[in-house]
Structures are given as structure tokens and as C-alpha cells.
Computed example of a mutant assay.
Amino acid sequence: MKTLSRVVRFESLRMARNFAPVFFALAFPVMMLCMFGGIYGNEPSSQFDGRGTVDMSVPAYLVLVVSVTGLMSFPLGLAEYRDRKVLKRFRATPVRASAFLIAQGLVNILLSLAGSVLLIAAGYLFFDLHLPATASAALATLGALLLATAAMYAIGGVVAALAPSERAATAVANLVYFPMIFLSGATVPLQIFPAAMKTISNALPATYAVNLLQHTWLDSATNVALDTGVLAGVVVLGAVAAVRLFRWE
């Protein structure tokens, strides 16, 4: 445990110097919120069944936050360590190489948590964001966010396991990340998508995360069993595939 805490501290310092994941997890969602919140405000809209733009956007942007760390930062960190033989070297020392994998996950999850808190605070302070109406709704939202996080990290784990190099991991992660955030409702509301784009969005796990979070937060209509089942399936299948396929060197 003492060794793990030191590795987590090391990874935290390393993450603080890495501009891209910190910016896209902490600043980018808030910038998106300020831009669209500044344009549309949070007045009830018929397009969103009487809900405000900010109220609809914040649960969706939470998926954006966890996608940044789960689909980009986490797998690229693992691929970098493997490509540069860091994990191979540490397997020959008393420090378990698995400690770096655990530390990578913990630090990225903490970054996701910080980004989520910052996003919600900005919405509440500047745009009159309506929080979940009841304690049970808040707990359901937390559970949905944890499930969405696990799904994104499971996919990220598969990316890290399959990519033969750091460069390949970067290419694959980008190919997964950008469609996932732009076609799922995590950035642009699904309600304004044409029918063909909605059909494409149904193939993306992030779509079900957005739907589930908006439901738990706002009680919006969705197929909860389908959303939960898809995300849980992604977690199980992704985790099994990542564990079986991951190479230390």
C-alpha cells in the first residue's frame, strides 16, 4: 500500500504536467457549457421537452469528461509505458508493474471526478443549473456516472491492449474518441440530429451513457434497461478482452 501511494503521487505529478488531458477534462467541458449556456441560457425549451439547455447539457458533458480520461489519457499512458519498456523494467524490481496500471486508473478517475465537480459547480453558479430533484435521483445519477466511467475505461483498456505501439495507440484512441463524443450527444444534443445520424449514434456506447445520465438527472424518457444493459455489457466484455489481450512488453 505504501508503494502504491508513492506511485499514485508520482503519476499525479506526471499528470499535472500533461496539458492535454488536464485541459480537456477540466477546462473544455466548462468552456462548452459557457459557450452554449451563454447563447441559449437555461430557459425551458420545447425542443428539450420543457427542460433548459444547460440542464440537458451538464449530464451529457459528464460523459465527455469521463471519455477524455477513459478513452484517451488512460490507454495512452499505458501504451507509453509499455512502448518505452517502463513496465518491463519494473517487472524486474520489487515494485510490481501492476502498481503503475492501478495508479494510472486512480489518477485518471480522480481527474474525471475533479472535472465533473467543476462542471456541475459552473453550471450551478453561473447558469442556474437544476440539480437532481431528490436524494435518490442524485444517487442514481452517481451510479449511472460510475457505470459510464467503467464502460469508457473498459474500452480504453482494449485500445491499450491491442495497440502495438504508442503511436498506434494514439491513432486508435483518436478514432474511437472523436466519434464517441461528437455523435453520441455528449457535445451536440441528440435532439437536433437528423434521423440518419441518430441511427449511427445508436451504435456508440456513449449514447447510452448520455441517455442514462439525462434520465437519472432529469427524469427524461429513455429505455433504462437497454441503456444499463449496453453499458454493463461493454464493461464486462471490454474488461475481459483487455485482461486477456494486454501485453506487458
Rank of each mutant, 00 (worst) to 15 (best):
P59W: 00
I155L: 13
L139R: 12
L125Q: 10
A242Q: 03
L226W: 11
G37S: 11
I200A: 13
F193Y: 15
Y177N: 12
G115K: 02
L111D: 00
L204I: 15
F28W: 14
V7Y: 06
L162G: 02
T93I: 06
F48S: 02
P44T: 13
A169Q: 03
L226I: 11
L190R: 14
A150S: 10
A241Y: 04
N18I: 04
N174R: 08
A209T: 08
I200G: 09
N174Y: 08
V240P: 00
K198M: 06
L110R: 00
L146A: 15
L226S: 06
L106M: 14
V54P: 06
G52C: 10
P205L: 11
A60K: 02
F24C: 03
L113R: 06
N223R: 13
A232C: 01
V107Q: 05
K88R: 11
F28V: 04
G157S: 02
T3Y: 04
L64S: 05
D227Q: 06
K2T: 14
P179Y: 05
A241H: 02
R244H: 07
A27G: 04
L237D: 01
V224I: 15
S201F: 07
V235I: 08
V117D: 06
A97D: 08
T141E: 04
A138M: 14
V240I: 15
T53E: 09
T93A: 12
V30R: 11
Y61P: 00
S57H: 05
L147Q: 09
V234M: 06
Y124G: 00
V63E: 05
R82I: 01
A16Y: 08
A27D: 00
N174K: 05
G233K: 04
A242P: 02
V86N: 01
D227P: 10
M1F: 09
Q214T: 07
L146M: 12
S45N: 15
A196I: 12
R6L: 14
V243F: 10
L106K: 02
G115M: 10
A60D: 09
T69M: 06
L162Y: 08
L26F: 04
L183H: 05
L76Q: 10
V68D: 03
A27P: 02
L146Q: 03
A25L: 04
K198S: 13
S112H: 01
P44V: 11
F246Y: 15
V188R: 03
V22K: 00
M56Q: 12
L106A: 14
V107S: 04
V86P: 02
V224M: 09
A150M: 10
A242Y: 00
L129N: 07
T187I: 15
Q191G: 10
L131H: 04
A121G: 01
N202H: 13
A114C: 09
I120H: 03
F182C: 03
S98C: 00
A79F: 00
A122N: 05
L78S: 01
E249A: 14
R84D: 09
S184G: 06
G143W: 08
I181K: 05
P179E: 05
D219R: 12
T141M: 14
L64W: 14
L4E: 13
